[in-house]
Each structure stands twice: as structure tokens, then as C-alpha cells.
């Protein structure tokens, strides 16, 4: 197949995922409502009881720290929820239908990863706007760069989701694995606490260091509040964005490997 045909197929697959999200408008609205409750009730109360001590510089606004953290956790959870959609597609035979289409497996995987990532990214845009408004805006460059990083991050998470769901081929295993991933990975990251606090517990700290969530959220914080967070961030901003790009490219490649080598022949449990 030629490159134009591959690109056309890619666009069709991206559209498939976007249409699927569009059909869930009420779901989006309700998620936005509970996000509003989360940032206005839970976030405000949590920030009232935080007092940074010791090595952490004074004058850091925990509420701003929390806002970008909770947006990241929402983007991660929405991207992870693709796992349940893919599991449902497997049960309904849609995955087999996709495999039967005259589309290269690699194009199919890249299309689904970008489509799922883009859908999750668009889904969380109202939350991003809310966070931006509560932070009192931000430099346009920071907004553009953080949105770009958010898209890369969600494509990587969907790549991870596709690799796992299509490898384990089990509804139960998907349910437990992603329940665990969602619960543990967010807590073992810098979403709620800075890395210097996590550094008091070596296993937690090294887990956070390897965690793409920490890299995305700290990158976004550094973009918006460079002076306050540069000493607290997990790493240099260039290193963090490189890590995110590597994460997305690596996980989408892993998904391509799984779809090309392991998917054929059914075996869904």
C-alpha cells in the first residue's frame, strides 16, 4: 500500500475513536461536573491543610500544584478507560473486524493509539480550561507546550493500554490490571506531593522517577511556574519532555509488536 492510502486509513481510524467519544457527550458533561467538585471542594480543603517544611521553598501555592496534578490524573484515567472500551470491542468481535480490514497492522495500531489519545485529550480540554482559569491564566507558550505534552502523554498511555489488553486477552485480567494501575501509579507519582517529599522513601521515589505521570505533571508545572518549581521538579524540562516522547514512541511500538505478532487467532477469555 502507498503512503497516501496509509494516511487515509490512519485518519479513518482516528475518526472512529473521535466519533466514539462524541457519542458519550453526557458522560463527558458529568465527568466535567465532578472534576469541578474535585477542584473546588477537595482541592481547596487539601491545600488549606498543607504546610511545606524543610527543604521545600516557602511561598509555593499548593493549590496551583494540586490543580495541574489533578488534571494529569484525570487525563491518565480517561486514557486508561480506553482499556475497557478495547476489552468490550474484543468481546463484540470488533477487533477481529478491524484485523480483517485492508489496513496494515502497524497503521491500525498507530491509528488507534493516536485516535484514543486524541479522544482522551479532547475529553479533558474543558478540565484543562477550568484549571487554567483557576490558576489565573498562563503564558501562551506554556499553554501550547503543555497541551502538546498532554497529547503525547495520552497517546503513550493508550499505547500502553493496547499493549496490555491485547496481550492478556482477558476481561477479568483487564479489569484488575487497570484498576491496580489506576490506583497505584497515580499515588506513586508527583501528582499530590513534590518529588523531594517522596525522596524520603526510596522505593516510592524511584517509582515516581520512572513514572511518566510525574514527568508530564512536573513538566507542566515548570512551564507555568518556572521560578517556584524548577528546584522541585523531577528533572530538567528538556529531559522530562524527552522522556515523554520516548514513552509514547516506545509504547506505541510495543503495541505494534503485540498487534502484529500476538493478536491473530483470537483467544479472548
Amino acid at each position: 500500500m502507498s503512503l497516501p492510502r496509509d494516511l487515509e486509513a490512519l485518519l479513518l481510524l482516528v475518526r472512529w475513536d473521535l466519533m466514539r467519544m462524541w457519542r458519550r457527550k453526557i458522560f463527558v458533561v458529568m465527568r466535567v461536573v465532578w472534576f469541578a467538585v474535585q477542584v473546588t471542594v477537595f482541592g481547596l480543603a487539601l491545600s488549606a491543610m498543607v504546610r511545606f517544611r524543610g527543604v521545600i521553598a516557602q511561598g509555593i501555592d499548593y493549590y496551583h500544584f494540586y490543580l495541574l496534578g489533578v488534571y494529569t490524573s484525570m487525563l491518565f484515567s480517561i486514557s486508561v478507560s480506553n482499556a475497557y472500551e478495547v476489552a468490550e470491542e474484543f468481546e463484540e468481535g470488533i477487533i477481529e473486524y478491524h484485523l480483517s480490514l485492508p489496513i496494515k497492522r502497524s497503521v491500525l495500531t498507530v491509528g488507534r493509539s493516536i485516535g484514543g489519545g486524541l479522544a482522551a485529550f479532547l475529553f479533558t480540554l474543558p478540565m484543562y480550561a477550568m484549571v487554567l482559569a483557576l490558576m489565573g491564566g498562563g503564558p501562551p507558550l506554556a499553554v501550547v507546550a503543555s497541551l502538546g505534552a498532554a497529547l503525547v502523554f495520552s497517546v503513550g498511555v493508550v499505547g500502553l493500554v493496547l499493549s496490555i489488553v491485547l496481550s492478556v486477552k482477558s476481561g477479568d485480567a483487564t479489569d484488575i490490571l487497570f484498576g491496580l494501575i489506576d490506583a497505584i501509579i497515580i499515588r506513586l507519582s508527583t501528582v499530590f506531593y513534590p518529588s523531594v517529599v517522596l525522596a524520603r522513601y526510596a522505593p516510592y521515589y524511584y517509582a515516581a522517577l520512572a513514572n511518566p505521570i510525574s514527568h508530564f505533571v512536573d513538566f507542566a508545572r515548570t512551564l507555568f511556574f518556572f521560578e517556584e518549581y524548577r528546584a522541585l521538579a523531577l528533572a530538567d524540562p528538556l529531559l522530562m519532555i524527552s522522556y515523554l516522547l520516548g514513552f509514547a514512541a516506545g509504547l506505541v511500538s510495543a503495541a505494534i509488536y503485540v498487534v502484529e505478532r500476538k493478536l491473530e487467532g483470537g483467544g479472548w477469555r
Binding site: V50, R51, F52, I184, R187, Y193
Partner: peptide
């Protein structure tokens, strides 16, 4: 995890 780490930044 959460409470254990958060304990370090909570106002006593």
C-alpha cells in the same frame, strides 16, 4: 502510599 507521604506536608 498517599497518607504516608502526605503526612510529611500536612500542617500538624
Amino acid at each position: 502510599i498517599f497518607a504516608f507521604v502526605f503526612n510529611n506536608i500536612v500542617n500538624r
